[in-house]
Every structure is written in C-alpha cells, then in structure tokens.
C-alpha cells in the first residue's frame, strides 16, 4: 500500500477503547497534572501525616484495582478472590524479612513472585470455569487461604500474627510508603498501557467478548487468561508486601479480608472496568464517597452498611462506571442513570 493511500484512511490506534474518548487530549492533560500533583505532594506544606496516610491507602487500592482490571475488566473473568494475592504478598514479604533476614526489596520481590506463582498454579485449573463457577472458586480459594494462614501457626504465626521491623529512618517512613504506593499505581497504569498495545491486550478483550472465537482465531486462551490472572496477582502481591512493611504487622484475619477484594472491584467498577484510568480514578471516587457518607452519617458501626448501600446504588444506576461521564461520552443526567435499569430489568 502506498503512503498516499495510508493517509487516506487514518487508523484509530486507540487500543481497544482503553483511553479517554472524545475529550482525549484535555483529559490526558488533566490526568498528567494530577499525577504531577501526586508526585510532589509530600513536598507540599500541607502534606500532613494524615493526608499522606490517606493517599497511600488510596494509591494501594488503586494499584490493586488496576491489577483486578486485567482479569476482571479486560479478560472478563469475575475474579472474587484477589485478596488471596494481597495476603500472600504480605506474608511472603513479612516472612522473608523476619525468617530469612532479607531486606525489604528482595522480600517484596519474593512476596510478589509467590503471589504470581500461586495465581498460575490455581489459574490453570480454575480459569477453565466460567461465570459464577469461576467467581465462587476464587472466593473459596481466598477464604481457604485465610483459614490455612490462620491455623498454620508454626509458619505464619497464626492468630498472633507476625511483626516486621520498622522502616528506618522512621521520620521518612510516611514519605517512603507514599512513594512506594505511588510508583506501584503509576507502574500499573503504564503496564496496562503497555499490554493494550501488545497482542496480549487484544487477546484479553477477544476472550472477554467471545472465548471460543478467540481460541479458534489462534489465541492461546489458556496462556492469555493465566497471564491476566498472574499480572493481577503481581499488582495485589506488591501492594500486600508494601502494606505489610508499612503496618509492620501481618495477620491472616486482616490481610485475607474479603472486603479488600470487594474494594478493588468496586474501585474498578466505579471508574469503569476495561478502561486504563477507570480503576485508578475509581479508587479516589470510592474513598471520597465513603468519606462523605461517613461524614454525613457519623455512626461508626454502620460503615459497612454505607459501603453496601454505595455498592447497591452503583450496581443499580451506573454499573459501567463513571468513566463514560467523565470522558464526555455520555452526559450525566437522570435519564442516563436510569438507562441501566431500562436495559436490564424484567
């Protein structure tokens, strides 16, 4: 084909609608500004410990949501047990530090690799399951892992948990963990972008849309699914390792909490599954929503109810996330919010 003809038919390289549509340039610029703000945030005068703490939590959640998006958003497998990878990452990092006496970074690598290997081992059999069956198998494995970690006292410390050394110098601790979380989330976004421009990205979306057709068209679906699962485990495992060292304490009940899975899914869903920035932005939206609701309904013991009500509202009104509204693809209106119900009610 000659150069002239190529110009005649411009090709949209937007990989699989991953990027903002419509106001692409403006929004990308806004995002870059926001990222820059986050990058210099600890240097700002009002960056108190409270804000660093909150943002570290949000960024860790964003990283996990970005990871969940690989398997749940792009590949379309409703993984409900990603907290298992978080827990394995936390235990892997913690145990390497206290039992092997390794430094934080090598331990973090061990934790993350352990999470990935685990994802590959369980992924090979369970990624053959579809729909509800896959979802519940992941819940079951995550719950079982929590129970095993809790009762395997000689290895994991059981109900007493394990205590990690403090980060030193301790006065930089807040900044250190903030930047770890920031880099992880940014790395996750870059990884998403990188994959979407590779064949792997196309195979994930093809599998989501029609697995049989994808398979027949030459896509090694098993490999692609296991990779999606393993990469989501990598993100959660790294987040778990960072979290463990940050809190200097690992307890099965805490790091295998099913609420964490729920939070990552919710962040991804709020922002928009199967989009690059959706899970990242969703993590912020999630925290803002929770904080606002807690503020207006200050009954401490009812936080879970608030979370539940948010999920119900999101599922009923905007399960495709807010990304369509933010990117200008759709106008935010009562009508747009009712569209979901019109489509899916009986």
């Amino acid at each position: 084909m000659s150069d002239k003809e190529k110009k005649k038919a411009p090709i949209r390289y937007s990989p699989l609608d991953g990027l903002f549509k419509g106001r692409q340039g403006v929004l990308l610029g806004l995002f870059a500004l926001f990222a820059l703000f986050l990058a210099i945030f600890p240097l700002l005068p009002f960056a108190s410990g409270f804000w660093l703490n909150t943002l570290t939590l949000i960024l860790l959640l964003a990283a996990m949501a970005i990871g969940w998006n690989f398997i749940g958003g792009y590949t379309g497998y409703a993984a409900f047990g990603n907290v298992a990878f978080f827990g394995i990452g936390a235990y892997g990092t913690g145990l390497s530090m206290i039992r092997l006496g390794l430094g934080f970074f090598p331990s973090l690598m061990i934790g993350a690799v352990a999470a990935m290997v685990f994802a590959i081992l369980i992924g090979l059999p369970i990624l053959r399951l579809k729909g509800h069956y896959f979802a519940i198998a992941t819940v079951a494995i995550a719950t079982a892992m929590g129970e095993i970690a809790d009762s395997w006292t000689s290895f994991t410390g059981g109900a007493a948990g394990i205590t990690l050394p403090f980060f030193s110098p301790i006065e930089w601790s807040g900044q250190f963990f903030y930047y770890m979380a920031f880099l992880l989330a940014m790395g996750g976004l870059l990884l998403t972008w990188f994959i979407l421009n590779r064949k792997m990205g196309y195979s994930w979306v093809a599998i989501r849309e029609d697995e049989d057709a994808a398979n027949m068209m030459g896509i090694n679906t098993t490999w692609a699914k296991v990779m999606a699962f393993a990469l989501s485990a990598l993100m959660a495992g790294l987040a778990g390792g960072i979290y463990a060292y940050w809190k200097t304490f690992v307890l099965a009940e805490e790091v295998f909490k099913i609420e964490y899975t729920l939070q990552m899914i919710l962040a991804a869903v709020l922002g928009g599954t199967g989009t690059i920035f959706g899970p990242f932005i969703g993590a912020f939206i999630y925290y803002i929503l929770i904080t606002l609701l807690v503020f207006f309904l200050p009954v401490g013991q009812l936080h879970a109810t608030i979370l539940g009500v948010i999920i119900i509202l999101v599922m009923v009104f905007t399960p495709k996330g807010l990304m369509d509204f933010l990117s200008g693809k759709k106008k935010l209106s009562v009508n747009a919010l009712l569209e979901n119900i019109r489509t899916y009610r009986v």
Partner: peptide, 29 residues
Amino acid sequence: VKPFRGMTVRENVAVGAMFGHGGHKRSPR
C-alpha cells in the same frame, strides 16, 4: 456469529491477522 462486540470492525479483523496463520510476523499495528 461470534463478533467481538466491544471492538471495531477493524480490530475484529485485525485479531485474525495478529494470531492466525502468519500472525507471528505481525505487530498489532
């Protein structure tokens, strides 16, 4: 029919060119 509904026509067809017979020598672009 088993189209990849979330993809454009071009992307749909390109999946074949990427992964089929001879796909190993082509990048997505």
